[in-house]
Design a protein around this nucleic acid. Structure first.
Length: 500
RNA sequence: GAGCCGGUAGCUCAGUCGGUAGAGCAUCUGACUUUUAAUCAGAUGGUCGUGGGUUCGAUCCCCCCCCGGCUCACCA
């Protein structure tokens, strides 16, 4: 039988809800009304009357028209207290038969937790002192056919929270807070950049060559062009083309996609801000980054010492600055000489239990050591400089030490938050670096950088000396919202499809 | 990709040393016009993640698979 009734698959509560909705319809109540002009929020009432005592409110004739979802309900036969939730918070409403009328009250009695109502009323204080609204009218605006999670324990199952984020947002106020903060953080960053005369731009998400970083890309296909495209792993090469074109202070806040593992700090799509500033060096960007993040933290968290993971992070400037080697020496508690030649560094790495290719380059070896020994211990913000040229195909070489590049990464709470360098603008050098990367690709490194001929051509027209940086926005939001997992700061984190 | 842990009512959880399951909240019926997890009386609700095996009998033991979490690997 084709038309198996879906009702048969529903539990009793869901069947009841649907039946109630039909009842309401038959009584002439539209369960999906669309004609209620809301005039106030819960916050308007709180803001206006939080300091009024019951005597003052007794004479108050102000009328408020609000709407929201019923989150709690305490019935007393001919009256009830409900709590409604709107975008600003919760409001207690006293609904009495004598105030709203017998007909409206009879319908109100049939409403469920989760239903959305519109109502009007005047403020008063209850016997226990809670600022509330005494409804003089109430009506159903939207029927909820699903059941709200438990009022006390709420929704804690992480899988359901991520899959049904809407429900998570309804019942977990902390989740709302995080995403309100996320929005605020991004606004603050955007305003800061614009105030410093940066121009916001949008560059391709679908790219014929996935450049600007070393990572495995997602592949997609354009039917009409009959060509594969890559979802971008970074906007870098396009933004630098804009610097060549004369937009010499640009930034972009947008998604990158990397086809790699998922973890507590990695989502396949993540938000990054990249910015480029001509006539600046990576030293300038260290100061700029300090200023930017301190500013955002002050606005969002209220200070420079912020809670994270049960501890505190001190963002007070100036931040520590160490070279890669200094950091390994400091946190590995070794003699500097150990790192001065490849062989002794490799012996040291093996003593730590690192499994490395015997042919690993000296530069790569140093960064492996740094990741193992120093990164997890960098709690307060620290700039790390003097990265090997070998692992930095797009960075400008240091003029005194060409085996190093003018680059820093910023670390906090044991993880990388930003990566910046003085840009390589010598097209010949750039071409050689790309060729070197191609060799590595042929040697089996899937993530080696691809050759981008047009980018070389752009550099040949001349790119002014420029410094550029990428800041991981999700990780910054994690830090400023004291979130342990990147999934807690991404509205819809990537999950496998729900099995049915 | 590997290891460990988990999946029982709408939600939060307990439980069965193998004899087909309980609580609280929610829901339903009734009482109640100032409650704050309201209260009181009664009631309903489950293919115990999926499939297979062992067994007289499996939600429980074994195996495969699915989904999630954490750790590691890769990376930002």
């Amino acid at each position: 039988m084709k038309g198996t009734n879906i009702m048969e698959e529903l539990n009793d509560i869901l069947v009841q809800r649907r039946a109630k909705m039909e009842d309401l319809r038959s009584e002439g109540v539209n369960p999906y009304a669309n004609d209620f002009p809301v005039q106030h929020t819960s916050a308007d009432i709180a803001d206006a009357h939080e300091n009024d005592d019951s005597a003052v409110l007794e004479g108050c004739t102000a009328k408020y028209v609000v709407a929201g979802r019923i989150m709690a309900r305490r019935d007393f036969g001919k009256a009830a207290f409900i709590q409604i939730q709107d975008r600003k918070g919760r409001l207690q409403v006293y609904v009495g038969r004598d105030n709203v009328g017998e007909g409206a009250f009879a319908i109100f009695r049939k409403l469920d937790l989760g239903d959305i109502v519109g109502l009007s009323g005047t403020p008063f204080r209850t016997k226990t002192g809670e600022l509330s609204l005494r409804a003089d009218s109430i009506r159903l605006l939207t029927k909820s056919l699903q059941v709200m999670p438990e009022k006390w324990h709420g929704l804690t199952d992480v899988e359901t929270r991520y899959r049904q984020r809407y429900l998570d947002m309804i019942v977990n106020p902390g989740v709302r807070e995080i995403f309100l903060k996320r929005s605020r953080i991004i606004s603050l960053i955007r305003n800061f950049m614009v105030d410093h005369d940066f121009l916001e731009v949008e560059t391709p998400m679908m790219q014929p060559i996935a450049g600007g970083a070393t990572a495995k890309p997602f592949i997609t296909h354009h039917n009409t062009l009959k060509m594969d495209l890559f979802l971008r792993i970074a906007p870098e090469l396009y933004l630098k083309r804009l610097v060549v074109g004369g937009f010499d202070r640009v930034f972009e806040i947008n998604r990158n996609f990397r086809n790699e593992g998922i973890s507590i700090q990695h989502n396949p799509e993540f938000t990054m801000m990249e910015f480029y500033r001509a006539y600046a060096t990576y030293h300038d960007l260290m100061d700029f980054t300090e200023e930017l993040i301190c500013h955002v933290a002050k606005e969002v968290v209220g200070g420079q010492v912020i809670p994270y993971g049960g501890k505190e992070v001190d963002l007070t400037a100036p931040w520590d600055r160490l070279t890669v080697k200094e950091a390994i020496v400091k946190y590995g508690e070794i003699e500097p000489a150990v790192l001065e030649d490849r062989a002794s560094a490799l012996t040291y790495a093996e003593s730590l239990g690192l499994e490395l290719d015997q042919n690993i380059g000296y530069g790569k070896l140093l960064t492996e050591l740094f990741d193992a020994v120093a990164e997890p211990k960098l709690w307060n913000p620290t700039f790390i400089t003097e990265y090997p040229t070998e692992v930095s195909p797009l960075s400008r070489k240091n003029e005194q030490h060409p085996e190093l590049v003018d680059r820093f990464e910023l670390f906090m709470v044991g993880r990388e938050l930003a990566n910046a360098f003085s840009e390589l603008n010598d097209p010949m050098d750039q071409k050689e670096r790309f060729l070197k990367q191609l060799e590595e690709k042929e040697a089996g490194d899937e993530e080696a950088h691809a050759m981008d001929e047009d980018y070389i051509r752009a550099l040949e027209y001349g790119m002014p000396p420029t410094a550029g940086e990428g800041i991981g926005i999700d990780r910054l939001v994690m830090l400023l919202t004291d979130s342990a997992s990147i999934r807690d700061v991404i509205l819809f984190p990537q999950l496998r499809p729900e099995s049915r």
